[in-house]
C-alpha cells in the first residue's frame, strides 16, 4: 500500500487520535476531494475486491463490481451521515452491486467461474496459494448465485444469519435454507475433490 495511505491507516489504528483522522479523510472525500476519496479506496479496496471475487468468481467481474461500488459511493457520498459506520455502508453497497451483477447472469444457473488470469498465476511465487485459490473458486462455482452469496457472507465473511438476510433483502429462514443447501454441496465437493486423488488431479491442472 502506498505510503500516504498506509500512514493514515496507521494513524487511524492508533487509539485516541485515529477516529479524528478517519473522519477528516471521510469528510474531505464527502466534500468532493478526490485525493481523499482515493485514500478511502486504498483503505477498503482489498476487502471489497475479496468480497466481490468470492461472490462473483472471476477476477474481472470482481474488478468491475468493485469499480461500480466505489463509483456509487462517490456519487452518493455527499448524502452519507458522517456519524454512521462508513465501512458498513460501503460493504452494503458492495453486496448490492455483486447481487445486481450476479442477477444479470443466467437465472437459476450456477455461476460459471472462468479459469482466469493465467498470467497472474504464472507470476504467483507460491504455487500452493494459487492452487488453493483455484480449488476454492471451483468449489464456489458449483453453488447457485443465491447459495453462494449466503455462504460467502455467512461462512467466509463471518456475518450472522440475520445480518446476511438483511444484506440480501431476504429472511433468516431463507438464508438458512440456502446455507444448508450450499454446505451439502460443498461437503460432497470436498469428499470428491479435496482429498486423495481428487486434490492431486486438481493440482495437476494448474
Amino acid at each position: 500500500m502506498p505510503g500516504d495511505a498506509a500512514g493514515i491507516l496507521l494513524v487511524a489504528e492508533n487509539p485516541g487520535s485515529g477516529s479524528e483522522a478517519v473522519d477528516e479523510v471521510l469528510a474531505r472525500a464527502r466534500s468532493g476531494d478526490r485525493d481523499a476519496f482515493n485514500i478511502l479506496i486504498m483503505r477498503h479496496e482489498q476487502r471489497i475486491l475479496r468480497l466481490a471475487q468470492r461472490m462473483l468468481g472471476s477476477r474481472e467481474d470482481a474488478m468491475d463490481a468493485a469499480q461500480e461500488t466505489f463509483l456509487r459511493v462517490f456519487r452518493h457520498l455527499h448524502t452519507f451521515d458522517l456519524k454512521r459506520d462508513f465501512s458498513a455502508w460501503l460493504y452494503r453497497i458492495a453486496v448490492n452491486v455483486c447481487r445486481d451483477s450476479a442477477r444479470r447472469r443466467k437465472p437459476d444457473s450456477p455461476l460459471a467461474l472462468v479459469e482466469e488470469a493465467p498470467v497472474s498465476e504464472r507470476q504467483e511465487s507460491d504455487a500452493i496459494l494459487a492452487q488453493q485459490r483455484r480449488i476454492l473458486r471451483q468449489a464456489l462455482s458449483i453453488l447457485s448465485s443465491k447459495e453462494r452469496a449466503a455462504l460467502v457472507l455467512r461462512d467466509i465473511e463471518g456475518l450472522d444469519t440475520v445480518e446476511v438476510a438483511r444484506l440480501l433483502n431476504s429472511t433468516p429462514t431463507t438464508v438458512r435454507s440456502q446455507i444448508s443447501s450450499a454446505r451439502s454441496k460443498l461437503r460432497e465437493f470436498h469428499l470428491t475433490h479435496a482429498s486423495g486423488a481428487g486434490a492431486n488431479k486438481d493440482a495437476g491442472k494448474g
Binding site: 488470469a117 460443498l186 470436498h190 469428499l191
Partner: peptide, 14 residues
C-alpha cells in the same frame, strides 16, 4: 468441509 472451506478462504484472492 467447513474447516476446509475456511482454510481456503484465508488465502487472499488474487
Amino acid at each position: 468441509a467447513d474447516s476446509w472451506l475456511k482454510s481456503l478462504s484465508e488465502v487472499e484472492p488474487e
